[in-house]
Computed example of a mutant assay.
Amino acid sequence: MATEKDLHQLMTARPRVWSPAELCEALNVHIVELVRLVAKARKKGVQIRVEQGEHTANTSKILLDEIGLPA
Rank of each mutant, 00 (worst) to 15 (best):
T56Q: 04
L27D: 01
N28R: 11
A26S: 12
L63W: 09
T3V: 02
V29A: 05
L37C: 03
D65K: 12
L23E: 03
V17Y: 07
E51I: 15
I48N: 11
V29H: 09
A57R: 09
H55T: 15
V35G: 13
H8G: 00
A71N: 14
G68D: 11
G45Y: 01
R49M: 12
T56H: 08
L10Y: 04
H8K: 09
H55Y: 12
R16H: 04
T3A: 09
R36Q: 09
D6V: 03
A21V: 05
H55S: 11
Q47Y: 12
E22N: 06
K61A: 07
V32A: 14
T56V: 13
G45T: 03
T59H: 05
L37H: 00
L7H: 02
A13I: 01
I48C: 09
P20Y: 00
I62E: 03
E66H: 09
K61P: 03
M11W: 12
A57T: 06
T59D: 05
H55P: 05
N58P: 01
L63T: 11
T3E: 02
G53H: 09
A41N: 10
C24F: 04
V38G: 15
I67K: 14
A26Y: 00
M1S: 10
N58C: 07
M1D: 10
E22K: 12
P15G: 10
L64V: 08
L63E: 15
V46P: 08
P15H: 02
R16V: 03
Q52S: 10
L64H: 15
G45S: 07
N28A: 12
L34K: 02
S60G: 12
S60F: 13
K61G: 03
Q52I: 01
A39R: 08
G53K: 06
S19R: 14
Q52E: 12
A26V: 07
P20R: 01
C24H: 02
H8T: 02
E54P: 04
E25A: 08
S60D: 13
